[in-house]
């Protein structure tokens, strides 16, 4: 009988205590929420609530500081890696985790992320790649795929006008300063388990002074892609993952 099962002692999975009870503003099915959850769980497992500072981006995750119960610093659009550098350099005993979207990191913030990685800042960068600007209403991002329709590529992205999609992790993996570069996803429970392990390793390696940990999450944007959450996950699997293959690109 279900009633006998639902007892506190039988709980095998519950919402992390590091997550606040504020309802998340994200669209239904948005990967941001799942990545927030993984980050909360990893921070809880590592017991670092009192010595971690997160940096929130400008974009859909701009209100991230309402959802995770740690200290947060909000960066200007694209500048999280520089803000993270400022924090980490003056507070070497803090875990410093920057969280950015694809417009934030790979468009306006390209210089900052490349130089932070090239300096090997001992920080973790979480990079959400959903191939679109969600917050502003679905415009093209640097990682928008060729042919992908967005508010600013209504006929589909064209190389001759909009150039090529950006393989960010491949670039970061080239920089000697990065020690761990991986591409993960959160669309299936298997992917979530794998992503959690990767994020934990990333945070531990950065804290151990091995250099920059760069964790890309290939993600969905159901409102921007104009698909239901489950269709978005399917579309991502068939279109994004072949171009942005999952797995570790570097673990030195």
């Amino acid at each position: 009988m279900v009633a006998e099962i639902i007892k506190p002692e039988n709980i095998v999975y519950a919402k992390s205590k590091m997550l606040t009870d504020a309802p998340m503003h994200y669209c239904p099915g948005c990967s941001h929420g799942t990545v927030h959850k993984i980050l909360a769980e990893v921070a809880e497992d590592l017991g670092i609530q009192d010595k971690v500072v997160g940096i929130t981006p400008v974009g859909c995750a701009v209100l991230l500081y309402s959802y995770l119960d740690i200290d947060w610093v909000e960066a200007a659009h694209g500048r999280a890696p520089a803000v993270a550098t400022g924090i980490k350099r003056t507070n070497p005993d803090l875990h410093v985790i920057a969280y950015q979207g694809d417009g934030d990191l790979a468009a306006i913030g390209t210089s900052e992320i490349i130089h932070a990685c090239n300096r090997g800042e001992n920080i973790t960068v979480i990079f959400i790649n959903n191939g679109i600007y969600g917050m502003t209403g679905g415009q093209m991002a640097p990682t928008t795929l060729i042919g992908m329709k967005t508010a600013t590529t209504p006929q589909g992205r064209r190389v001759d006008i909009n150039g090529y999609p950006f393989k960010v992790s491949e670039i970061m993996a080239q920089l000697p300063g990065t020690s761990y570069v991986t591409r993960q996803a959160v669309h299936t429970s298997g992917a979530v388990r794998q992503a959690k392990k990767a994020l934990k390793k990333a945070i531990e390696k950065a804290y151990a002074g091995k250099g920059t940990s760069f964790v890309e999450f290939v993600a969905t944007c159901s409102s921007g892609w104009k698909l239901s959450p489950t269709e978005a996950n399917k579309w991502m699997t068939e279109n994004m993952l072949p171009f942005y293959p999952l797995g570790d690109l570097k673990d030195s």
């Binding site: 279900v2 006998e4 099962i5 639902i6 007892k7 039988n10 709980i11 095998v12 999975y13 519950a14 919402k15 992390s16 997550l19 309802p23 998340m24 994200y26 239904p28 099915g29 948005c30 990967s31 941001h32 929420g33 799942t34 959850k37 959160v186 669309h187 299936t188 429970s189 979530v192 388990r193």
Partner: peptide
């Protein structure tokens, strides 16, 4: 839970939930 008896408490649902609304029990 549309078919509660089939549940094995494998937590797959809770893992993918973006809003952490699912608590899983197992015996």
């Amino acid at each position: 839970m549309h078919q509660p008896d089939a549940c094995t408490g494998c937590v797959s649902c809770a893992l993918v939930c973006p809003d952490s609304v699912i608590t899983v029990y197992k015996v």
